[in-house]
Simulated assay, not measured.
Amino acid sequence: MADKTLFITGASSGIGAATARMAVAQGWKVGLFARSADKLDALVEGLGDKALALPGDATQLAEQQEAVDKLAAHFGDVTAAFANAGRGASAAGTLQGEPDDWQSLVNLNVMGVLWTAKVVAPYFQKNQGHLILTGSAAGRMHIKGSVYSATKWFVHGYAGNLADEFREWGARVTVIAPGMVDTPFFDAAKPEKLKSEDIASSVLFALEAAPRASIREVFIMPMN
Rank of each mutant, 00 (worst) to 15 (best):
A2Y: 15
A2V: 00
D3S: 09
L6C: 05
L6A: 05
F7C: 01
I8V: 01
I8R: 13
T9S: 15
A11H: 13
S12R: 05
G14P: 06
G14H: 10
I15R: 11
I15S: 03
I15K: 09
G16D: 05
G16N: 12
G16A: 01
A17H: 13
A17K: 09
A18Y: 15
A18W: 11
A18K: 02
T19A: 08
A20K: 08
R21W: 13
M22V: 00
M22K: 05
V24Y: 08
V24M: 04
V24T: 06
A25T: 02
G27C: 10
W28L: 02
K29I: 00
K29M: 07
K29Q: 12
K29G: 00
G31V: 00
G31W: 15
L32S: 01
L32N: 05
L32M: 04
F33L: 03
R35K: 13
S36R: 15
A37P: 01
D38Y: 15
D38W: 12
K39R: 15
K39T: 06
L40Q: 07
L40T: 06
A42D: 13
V44R: 13
G46S: 12
G46R: 13
G46C: 08
G46N: 13
L47Q: 07
L47N: 05
G48S: 04
D49N: 12
A51W: 08
A51R: 11
L52F: 12
L52A: 06
A53N: 15
A53Y: 13
L54D: 11
L54K: 10
L54T: 03
P55A: 06
P55S: 09
G56V: 00
G56L: 02
D57W: 13
D57R: 07
T59I: 02
T59D: 10
L61A: 05
A62F: 15
A62Q: 14
E63Y: 14
E63T: 05
Q64R: 08
Q65Y: 15
A67H: 15
A67V: 00
A67Q: 09
V68S: 01
D69F: 14
K70F: 03
A72Y: 11
A72N: 11
A72G: 10
H74D: 11
F75W: 04
G76F: 05
G76V: 03
T79D: 12
A83K: 08
N84V: 06
G86C: 02
R87T: 00
S90G: 05
A91I: 01
G93D: 00
Q96K: 12
E98K: 15
P99D: 10
D100Q: 09
D100S: 12
